[in-house]
Amino acid sequence: MTHHFVRNVAAAAALIAIGASTDAAAQDTGLRPGWSFEIAPYIWLPSVSANLRYNVPSNFGGTADVKANADDYFANLNAAFALAGTVRYDRFSLLTDIMYVSASAGSSRVQSVNLLDVGRDPISSTVDAAGNSTLKTTLWTLAGGYTVASGTWGNVDVLAGFRYLGIDSTTDYSAAVTLVGPRGNAGPTFGGAGRLSGSDNIWNGIVGVRGRINIAESGFFVPYYLDIGAGDSNFTWQTFAGIGYQTGWAGVQAGWRYMSYDQGGNRLVQDMTMSGAYLAVNFSF
């Protein structure tokens, strides 16, 4: 994360906090005093689109670029766990969100191979480089927050923290051609049927805003969330919005969640997006 990026984001967050705090001073804060806790198990089954760059297993080195798509996580789901939680003391809060998903991306294709001494060789769909990828993904967010504005209408929190993405992926491929090095069988080869595998750990600092807008005194509300960040990624961002209902210590909310990563170089995850419906139940005490 560049210093320039950090300064710009910090300045924007400070302006939001100053302006919102001024408005909040003249109205009911709507805050629950003292300690409060919230636990929210949830389901998020996004469609996933990822460009992956594997290291080709060879003494001579090289990479293979794979396009993997999972349009229906539910149909290809192997395992899933997701839980969010918030600890709050007056205006201060600490939130965490952890999710683990193992799913297959049946629509996968090797797009190009770059072997040392051979160079980059694009592979067209006519050579039948179709395959299947399995993505095991762990997402963990931890951030501190501060309520800059609140009232009977809802609240606005600014937050700062980090997000971790850990991914283990494998791609089974079947290509109708075989690429070889200039020394024949003594050189690097790629083709036929085989498997590529890789793993990556991506850490990013994030800043953002979150909260809810209450709909009159009906118990219904509109939750919202947005963060942006950088670090191991060139850029990452996440957003969520939906509709919820709260009665006493229990509630439910549904909506749409989107997350994006943009990297480069020879990292496994070149870029990845996750987008889909979200359903959560929350318990407050």
Rank of each mutant, 00 (worst) to 15 (best):
F220P: 03
G229P: 04
G184K: 08
T239L: 09
L179K: 10
A186T: 09
G208E: 05
F235K: 06
V222K: 12
V252A: 15
N266P: 04
I228S: 07
F235D: 02
D200H: 07
A193N: 14
G198Q: 02
G184A: 12
Y173G: 03
A176Q: 13
D232Q: 08
I202K: 06
T170H: 06
G244H: 07
G244E: 03
I202W: 02
G242V: 10
L226V: 11
Y173H: 03
R183G: 14
D262K: 14
G255H: 00
F235R: 11
L226G: 08
S218G: 12
R267C: 03
Y173K: 02
G191M: 09
D227I: 15
T236R: 11
R267V: 06
T189L: 13
G208N: 00
S218I: 05
D200A: 03
D227V: 11
E217S: 10
W256M: 04
W237P: 01
W256Y: 15
F221V: 02
I243F: 11
N185W: 09
Y225H: 13
Y245Q: 11
P188V: 09
Q270A: 05
G251E: 02
T247L: 12
R195S: 14
G191A: 11
G248C: 12
N185A: 15
N185G: 14
Y225N: 07
L179D: 05
T239A: 13
Y225F: 15
G211C: 10
P182H: 12
L268V: 05
V252S: 01
I243T: 02
Q238C: 04
G191K: 02
G194S: 03
G248W: 09
G255P: 00
R212H: 13
V207S: 11
D200G: 05
L179Y: 06
A216W: 15
G184P: 02
